[in-house]
C-alpha cells in the first residue's frame, strides 16, 4: 500500500501545535514511518506549490494575505483538511485584535511602543498585508476535521492520523477535546 501523503502548514499561530507533534517523542519515529510527510516546517520537502496530498493539516488562523493564499491553495491540493489547534479551529488568541482596526494594532506595535525610535508602519511588496480580522480556517475554506487545544495533546493528533489511516474521518472523543 502506498503511504498516505501529509502536508502540514502553520499560519497565524505560535508553532505550539507543531511542537506538540514533536512531543510524541519516540512514537514520532513510528508515525513518520507510516505516512509520507511532504510540505511541512519540519522537513525540507517544500515547494512553491503543494503537491497533491491526502491530508493537509493547518496550524493557525488566517491573519494575513499570505495565510489566506496558503490555506486556499492547500485546500485545493488535499483530500482532507484538518484544522489543528485553537487558532485554526476557533481563530484563537489572535482574534483579540478582531475588534480593533488593523491600523490601530499596527500603529501601536510600530509607532507607540516605548523603545521604537522611527515610528513607521512596515508596508512593502515583500511582506504580506494583514487581513481585517483573524479568522478560523473554516471561515475561509471547508474543513473536514477538527483538533482543538492550545496546543492539542500529541495523542490527539496521533489519534486523528490513526483514524485517517483506517479510512475514517476523525472525530475526537469527548475526553480528548480540550480548549486550553
Amino acid at each position: 500500500m502506498k503511504k498516505p501523503k501529509l502536508a502540514t502548514v502553520w499560519c497565524e499561530a505560535c508553532a505550539g501545535c507543531h511542537m506538540s507533534f514533536l512531543d510524541l517523542d519516540e512514537a514520532l519515529v513510528d508515525i513518520l514511518a507510516q505516512v509520507e510527510l511532504t510540505v511541512s516546517p519540519l522537513t525540507d520537502f517544500k515547494d512553491y506549490a503543494f503537491p497533491q496530498v491526502d491530508v493537509g493539516i493547518v496550524e493557525g488562523g488566517v491573519g494575513n494575505e499570505e495565510n489566506r493564499e496558503v490555506i486556499e491553495h492547500l485546500r485545493q491540493q488535499c483530500r482532507f483538511l484538518i484544522a489543528w489547534g485553537d487558532c485554526a479551529v476557533f481563530g484563537g488568541i489572535h482574534t483579540l485584535r478582531n475588534w480593533l482596526s488593523k491600523d490601530e494594532v499596527l500603529r501601536c506595535g510600530y509607532v507607540e511602543t516605548a523603545s521604537t525610535v522611527n515610528g513607521i508602519i512596515p508596508a512593502h511588496e515583500d511582506i504580506p498585508q494583514l487581513l481585517d480580522k483573524v479568522l478560523p480556517v473554516n471561515a475561509v475554506v471547508a474543513v473536514d476535521g477538527y483538533i482543538p487545544g492550545c496546543p492539542p495533546a500529541p495523542e490527539a493528533l496521533a489519534y486523528c492520523l490513526k483514524e485517517l489511516l483506517a479510512g475514517r474521518l476523525p472525530v475526537l472523543p469527548a475526553d480528548m477535546i480540550h480548549f486550553d
Binding site: 499561530a13 505550539g16 489572535h94 492550545c150 496546543p151
Partner: peptide, 25 residues
C-alpha cells in the same frame, strides 16, 4: 505580525503570563 502590544491592552495584568506565552510555542 500579530499585534500583542495592542490587543493585550485592557486585559488584567495577571493574565499576561498565559497570554504572552502564546507568542511562541
Amino acid at each position: 505580525f500579530r499585534g500583542y502590544e495592542r490587543f493585550c491592552q485592557g486585559r488584567p495584568f495577571e493574565e499576561m503570563p498565559v497570554i504572552t506565552q502564546r507568542i511562541c510555542g
